[in-house]
Amino acid sequence: MPKKVHVQTTINGEAVEYLCEPRQSLLEVLRDVLHLTGAKEGCNNGNCGACSVILDGRLVNSCLVLGAELEGKSLETIEGLAEPEQLHPIQDAFLENAALQCGICTPGFIMAAKALLDQNPNPTEHEIRYWLAGNLCRCTGYDKIVRAVQDAAQTTS
C-alpha cells in the first residue's frame, strides 16, 4: 500500500487534518476517510456533478481533485450549509418547489446553485441553466430545480 499523505485543511470553517493515499480522490477522502457522504459518486469522471463542492470559492467536482490537494485550502460541502436551526435559503427553496425526487443529485445541485448565487445573485433563466448544465438530474426534468434556484435568488438578493 502506498505511503499516506498528511493533509491540514479547512472544511466548512473548521480545521481538519487527515491521512490519505496519494491516489485517493477528494471524493473518496470525503466519503471514506471523513465520512462526509453528502457528496455522491454518480460517475467518478466529472460528468454528473453529484459530487460538487466549493473549493476556495470555486465549484469543482470532488472526484476530479486529489485528496492530497486540499492542503492549506478551504472547502465547503453540503454538510456545512444549514445552520443548526435554519436551512440555507437554497435548501428551503428546493423543498418548497419539490425540486427533488430521488435526491441523489440534490446536494450537488445545491452546491452548484450556491456557487452561482455567490457570484451572480440575480441570474436569468438561461444563466441558471448554463451554470447547472454540469449537474445531471434524471428524475425531475430540471423544471422545478430551475424554479427553486430562481426563488432562492429572490430570497437571498
Binding site: R31, T37, E79, Q91, G103, I104, T106
Partner: peptide
C-alpha cells in the same frame, strides 16, 4: 435530502 444526511446504499 437537502442536507446530505440521507443515507443511500453507497
Amino acid at each position: 435530502k437537502v442536507t446530505g444526511r440521507a443515507l443511500y446504499g453507497a
